[in-house]
């Protein structure tokens, strides 16, 4: 008889526990935010921290109420607007970056120019500069062109910021495809345009999904440019969140945590929906077929 063995892929109790502890350490700040979102003002500030409390939805109500009473003062949060802004701006800019970037990546991969690598490197260098270095010229450009405070301005800016990353990532996916498959399609009568849409693009769907997720998270979290280049109407959540801090009665941790909890949901949903693609996308090219 062969020795009894664990089924492949099933770890022992010790390892499972170890992994659980590590996961908990990473997840703890998120958990704390979510817990705080359901606490009253005084519970949120209690020291030592309160673990058992009566949950309240008051913070979430406040997020979406146009005005509420805090002491004698009426404050409008308008967070429904900011949520819309964040979704609209991140979604549009990532979409633009994907369309332009995927086409560019296909070009770089299949129709290399003389000095192809140099161009690719130049594209990459635009991401090497710290954002803070370029913020002043961009701010001035936006002032002069009238793009400051507009949707168009911030969407274009984010699209341009997502482009280098999109091009590099999509190029690596296109590079991985078998050239024989494309030759076969040519012989089967496909024009170059149909070849791209019918053969190449469907093969890199996982890559597009992975690129989109990374781009969305990057844009969703962006603060610096949004702070300086969005106006009252086009403000995104990270900026709006920062502006709720302060006021007469100090930081409203409960309200802030509620906003953050809501802020997390779209990211979790996107990652959850695309997780299979994401895994295939990020492991693409690392596994020899």
């Amino acid at each position: 008889m062969a020795a009894q063995r664990r089924p492949i892929g099933e770890a022992g109790w010790g390892r499972t526990l170890g992994a659980g502890i590590v996961a908990f350490v990473y997840f703890f700040p998120v958990l704390w935010i979510i817990l705080t979102a359901f606490k009253t003002y005084s519970d949120a500030l209690a020291i030592p921290p309160v673990w058992l409390f009566t949950p309240t939805l008051e913070n979430f109500v406040q997020v979406f109420s146009r005005s509420y009473s805090a002491g004698a003062e009426a404050v409008a949060t308008g967070f429904d607007r900011f949520f819309f802004n964040s979704i609209f701006i991140a979604g549009s800019s990532v979409l633009i970056a994907l369309v332009v970037g995927t086409l560019a990546a296909y070009g770089f991969s299949r129709f290399p120019l003389r000095g192809n690598d140099t161009y690719l490197f130049i594209i990459l260098t635009t991401r090497m500069m710290p954002a803070i270095v370029v913020i002043i010229p961009i701010f001035l450009m936006f002032q002069i062109t009238g793009l400051a405070g507009t949707y168009l301005g911030i969407i274009l800016l984010y699209a341009v910021f997502n482009l280098p990353f999109t091009i590099w990532m999509m190029k690596s996916f296109f590079d991985e495809l078998s050239p024989d498959v494309e030759d076969a399609a040519r012989m089967d009568g496909s024009s170059e345009v149909r070849l791209f849409f019918k053969i190449c693009l469907p093969q890199v769907v996982a890559g597009i999904a992975a690129t989109a997720v990374f781009g969305l998270i990057l844009t969703w979290n962006e603060f610096l440019f949004a702070l300086l280049l969005t106006g009252v109407e086009t403000r995104t959540i990270p900026v709006a969140m920062a502006q709720t801090i302060g006021g007469d009665i100090g930081v409203r941790w409960g309200l802030l945590a509620a906003i953050e909890t809501l802020f997390l949901i779209p990211v979790i949903v996107v990652v959850f929906v695309l997780q299979n693609h994401l895994l295939r996308g990020v492991t693409f090219g690392t596994i020899k077929r």
Partner: peptide, 29 residues
């Protein structure tokens, strides 16, 4: 041009379309 020479080729790597079913592969040309 490649398209329309009336020539077919079988590749060493088979070069099947991985995202299509076998039926769609056969129907493609």
């Amino acid at each position: 041009p490649v398209q329309g020479r009336g020539i077919a080729m079988i590749f060493q790597t088979f070069a099947l379309y991985p995202h299509l079913t076998v039926r769609e592969n056969l129907a493609y040309p």
